[in-house]
Design a protein around this nucleic acid. Structure first.
Length: 595
RNA sequence: UCCCCGAUAGCUCAAUGGUAGAGCGAGCGGCUGUUAACCGCUAGGUUCUAGGUUCGAGUCCUAGUCGGGGAGCCA
């Protein structure tokens, strides 16, 4: 925004008049107009209602285009109806199919790229003389409020409210922020009556116009449209998303459309911010980002179902009798999708220092809960010369830092979650970022639970793993904040965890948080060769199968530690969402891999 | 995988074994610098599937499918 364009003293009414486009029929018909109707019809197929759309668009395009071509060239006017048809005359540079009035040089090439369909002419148009329009996202418009500036936005209609006062209000969203941009569409735009009813929930549009102060409550600025392009319609009688709240169960069935809702847009932005915060945390501390393999022939936990990866013909194998010859398979031995990158990450940590992995992980367990996915994302840092205390320190700092970063970066989305999803989520998160975690040994926790006077459904006894109800009691009732439990019985933990001198426990640690439960699992690793080999045998594993992992203890072994953080569980904590299937784009769970 | 609950209009849900209903959404009209708008009218149903009981089943019984909650496995 510039001082010349928008004097601070200008009233809302003044601004509106000053920037109101020329709307007389004469000037309107002078606009060179292009029809994007083919874009719409390509995207929509050929149902009855869609044909209806096409007819209207062709009609309005034909009228305006013929008028425009019959008149002598005029300077670009503020109001122009941009539609493009492959049948419409393309005259001069303004006739280029995707020409928008007033594009800046900076984003010219990008703006002229067709979104869909065959309408591009390949003839890039030169920017016009008084080209002042620039492409902007809603987030920038709302935060910068560039009053008086000509801008262009592209996105989707959320709702429309018609007024008989000569305009309609279009709620517009381009995903850049939770808030919608209110667009004022005046009935004086060419062909208004023919196309306004196509601006329904879900329709994709581009709008050029001037940013102006809004005279009504609800928004500080709005966009007064001077030109509008319809990319694709979304017939209201068919489009599944309505101008109302939908249940998460229903939205899960249309997961390809749910990013268009407030909740799932906010989740996507928070997930993005969380991922960035995770990388920032490690990168700023000198951790190395390591890409560990997705396909593996080792079983990290020595337990748990894995997804088999094979190129063998399963249909043929099913008819054959006898043993499967794995030598015939792609890797010449059984291979699976990884359940953890930890073992591979250890090899890098024991060479290059602190490192971390961040990628998808797969578990073929038949889990049907709100906290389990068959495919999920996990962050696994691994640090040489760290003991369990160092590990717990890092995990605590890590969680508090990434939560704080997301709170800072996504205030609007987080406020939305607090208002509409879980009214306690902000309080819970601040409680986590502002307070130290409780640290409790497993033995202490068992004693505490035994003496709580509380009746649990499952027994509490040293040597048994803690149940969900026990963990929830600790985090939600006893301490009301995250709890790190450590030094678990060795019998209930995997082979790679370092054995304590008591002979009964291992240097494991779980970070438990209210409502979600275990969000981090980690340990100090067993770095002593003889102890590790003995433990593998004890767990029923053949050390020869892990020869490369055991080699780390043969050559220059070091004490080291690490942990794994479930990304989706962190998102549950962050957003207040209940079901883990709603914080990942396309959840994979037993019997479900649609999309 | 186990336990419990559910499936009725596009969505969310009502409906003693006896003619299928509402709100929201949609269409049409009215009103309005509107904003979860408001007011009126209209359309919209193989009551998840397959059997069974009954004069009669959305309702009762059996099996299956799908969804939700809890548990286990774990991140």
């Amino acid at each position: 925004m510039t001082q010349e364009n928008a004097p601070a003293a200008l009233t809302a009414a003044d601004a509106q008049d000053k920037h109101r486009p020329t709307t007389s029929p004469t000037s309107a018909t002078r606009q060179l107009c292009h029809n994007r109707q083919r874009v719409a019809s390509v995207a929509n197929g050929a149902s009855r209602s869609k044909r209806h759309v096409s007819q209207n668009w062709e009609t309005s395009a034909a009228i305006v285009a013929s008028s425009g071509s019959a008149l002598p060239p005029v300077p670009p006017a503020p109001a122009r109806w941009t539609v493009a048809s492959d049948r419409a005359p393309h005259r001069g540079r303004a006739g280029t199919a995707l020409d928008f009035p007033g594009q800046t040089r900076n984003n010219q090439s990008r703006s002229r790229r067709p979104a869909v369909g065959p309408v591009a002419t390949g003839e890039p148009a030169e920017p016009e003389e008084n080209d002042a329009m620039r492409r902007m996202k809603t987030a920038a418009i709302l935060s910068q409020a560039p009053i008086g500036e000509d801008v262009e936005v592209r996105g989707w209609v959320r709702t429309r409210r018609d007024s008989k006062q000569g305009f309609a209000f279009v709620e517009f969203n381009d995903g850049s922020t939770l808030a919608n941009l209110q667009i004022l569409v005046e009935t004086s735009l060419p062909g208004y009556a023919d196309w306004i009813h196509h601006l329904t929930t879900g329709a994709s549009i581009g709008v050029c116009g001037v940013v102006q102060a809004s005279p009504a409550k609800g928004q500080s600025v709005e966009l007064l449209a001077s030109a509008l392009t319809l990319y694709g319609t979304a017939p209201a009688e068919k489009y599944p998303l309505q101008k109302k709240q939908h249940s998460f169960e229903f939205l899960r069935e249309i997961a390809h459309l749910r990013p268009r809702t407030n909740t799932f847009g906010a989740i996507a932005r928070v997930r993005n911010a969380l991922s960035a915060a995770i990388h920032n945390f490690f990168q700023s501390r000198g951790f190395l980002y390591v890409h560990t393999p997705i396909i593996t022939t080792s079983d990290c936990e020595g337990a748990g179902q894995m997804f088999r990866v094979t190129t063998l013909d399963l249909a043929r194998l099913a008819q054959l009798k006898g043993e499967i010859d794995w030598g015939e398979d792609f890797f010449a031995k059984p291979a699976s999708l990884t359940v953890s990158g930890q073992l591979e990450a250890e090899t890098f940590a024991c060479a290059l220092g602190e490192c971390y992995t961040f990628g998808p992980t797969f578990r073929a367990e038949n889990s049907n809960t709100t906290r389990h996915l068959a495919e999920f994302w996990m962050v696994e840092p691994e640090m040489p010369f760290y003991d369990l205390a160092d590990n717990m320190d890092l995990a605590e700092t890590f969680i508090r830092t990434i939560l704080r970063d997301v709170l800072e970066r996504c205030p609007a989305d987080m406020e939305f979650f607090n208002q509409r999803i879980d009214k306690t989520v902000l309080e819970t998160l601040r409680n986590i970022t502002d307070n130290e975690f409780v640290r409790l040994s497993y033995t202490e926790a068992v004693g505490l639970l035994e003496n709580s006077g509380r009746k649990f459904e499952y027994p509490v006894r040293w040597g048994l793993d803690l149940q969900s109800e026990h963990e929830r009691y600790l985090t939600e009732e006893q301490f009301r904040r995250p709890v790190i439990l450590y030094d678990y019985p060795r019998a209930i933990k995997p082979f790679y965890m370092r054995c304590n001198d008591d002979g009964k426990t291992v240097r494991a640690m779980d970070v438990l948080v209210p409502r979600v439960g275990e969000i981090i699992g980690g340990s100090q690793r067993e770095e002593r060769l003889d102890v590790l080999v003995a433990r593998m045998t004890e767990c029923g594993l053949n050390p020869d199968d892990y020869w490369w992992y055991v080699d780390l203890r043969r050559y220059g072994t070091v004490p080291h530690a690490g942990f794994g953080l479930g990304l989706e569980r962190t998102l549950l904590l962050l957003t207040g969402m209940i079901n883990i299937r709603d914080v990942i784009a396309y959840p994979r769970t037993p019997k479900h891999a649609e999309f």
